[in-house]
Computed example of a mutant assay.
Amino acid sequence: MSGVNDPIPFLDLSGEYHAVEAEWFAAIHETGQSGRYILGPNEQAFEEELAAHVGTKFSLGVANGTDALLLSLRALDIGPGDEVITTPYTFYATAEVISLVGATPVFADILEDCFTLDPASVKTKITDKTRAIMPVHIFGHPARMDELNAIAREHDLAVIEDAAQAYGADVGGKRVGSLGNAGGFSFYPTKVLGCYGDGGMITTDDEAMLERLKKLRNHGASAPFMHDTVGYNSRLDEIQAALLRIKLRKLDDDVAKRRAVAARYTELFAGSVVKAPTLPANGGHAFNLYTIRMPERDRVRGVMNDNGIPSSQCYPLGLHLQEVYEHLGYKVGDLPVCDQASTEALSLPVYPAMKMEHVERIADTIIKALG
Rank of each mutant, 00 (worst) to 15 (best):
S2G: 04
G3F: 01
W24L: 13
A27L: 07
T31K: 01
G32P: 01
Q33G: 03
I38Y: 04
L39F: 02
G40Q: 06
Q44T: 15
E47H: 15
E49R: 10
A51M: 09
V54D: 13
T56Y: 00
T56K: 01
K57N: 12
G61N: 00
N64H: 14
T66I: 13
S72L: 08
A93H: 09
T94L: 14
T94D: 01
A95S: 11
E96G: 01
S99G: 10
F107W: 12
A108H: 10
P119I: 01
P119T: 10
S121Y: 00
K125M: 11
K125T: 08
D128H: 09
I133P: 05
H141P: 01
H141L: 08
P142V: 05
E147I: 08
A150L: 11
V159W: 00
V159I: 06
E161W: 00
Y167K: 04
G168T: 14
G172T: 10
G172M: 07
G173S: 08
S178F: 14
A182R: 12
G184D: 03
G194Q: 12
G194R: 12
G199A: 08
G199M: 07
T203R: 07
L213K: 05
K215Q: 07
G220D: 01
A221L: 13
A223M: 06
A223I: 05
M226A: 09
T229S: 13
L236Q: 07
D237I: 12
E238Y: 02
A241L: 05
L244P: 00
I246E: 06
K250G: 15
D254Y: 11
V255S: 15
A260Q: 15
V261N: 03
V261R: 12
A262N: 11
T266V: 06
E267P: 00
H285L: 12
M294C: 06
P295K: 08
N305C: 04
D306V: 08
L317F: 09
E323P: 00
Y325Q: 04
H327V: 13
L328I: 09
G329T: 15
G329N: 09
K331H: 13
V337E: 01
C338T: 15
L346A: 14
P349I: 14
V350H: 04
E357C: 02
E360Y: 00
T365K: 10
I367F: 06
A369Y: 08
